[in-house]
């Protein structure tokens, strides 16, 4: 299998993720979509690392995983708090911070 197929897959996953972020209201689903985008990037990094024969991309993939883990911790905590106060995980309802 040529490495370009991985890159194409990464692009498809990224697009799916970004569409998910934009169209879904549920914060948990959006969160999952963000994870999908991060992992699409990871896939691309690893694919490029493989194509170019150096390890930089793989290292970056690890960094991304660490960042994603940290993000999950903070993000889920926020989502849970919002859910407790508003009985909903919709991102459209908390819109008080505006003009």
């Amino acid at each position: 299998m040529s490495p370009s197929a991985y890159v194409v897959l990464a692009a498809i996953l990224f697009t799916l993720g970004s569409v998910g972020v934009l169209v879904r209201r549920n914060a948990i689903v959006m969160f999952m979509s963000v994870e999908m985008m991060l992992n699409a990037c990871n896939l691309a990094f690893v694919a490029f690392a493989r194509m170019n024969g150096n390890l930089d991309g793989q290292v970056v993939a690890f960094f991304v995983m660490v960042v994603a883990a940290a993000e999950v911790v903070v993000g889920l905590a926020i989502i849970v708090t919002i859910f407790r106060t508003r009985r909903s995980a919709s991102v459209d309802e908390p819109n008080l911070l505006k003009y």
Binding site: S18, L22, V91, N95, L96, Y99
Partner: peptide
């Protein structure tokens, strides 16, 4: 311009995209 600050997180996401 401040009307852009709609408070909807998803519109911000669209703008970022």
């Amino acid at each position: 311009m401040r009307r852009l600050q709609s408070g909807f997180a998803r519109s911000y996401a669209l703008a970022m995209l």
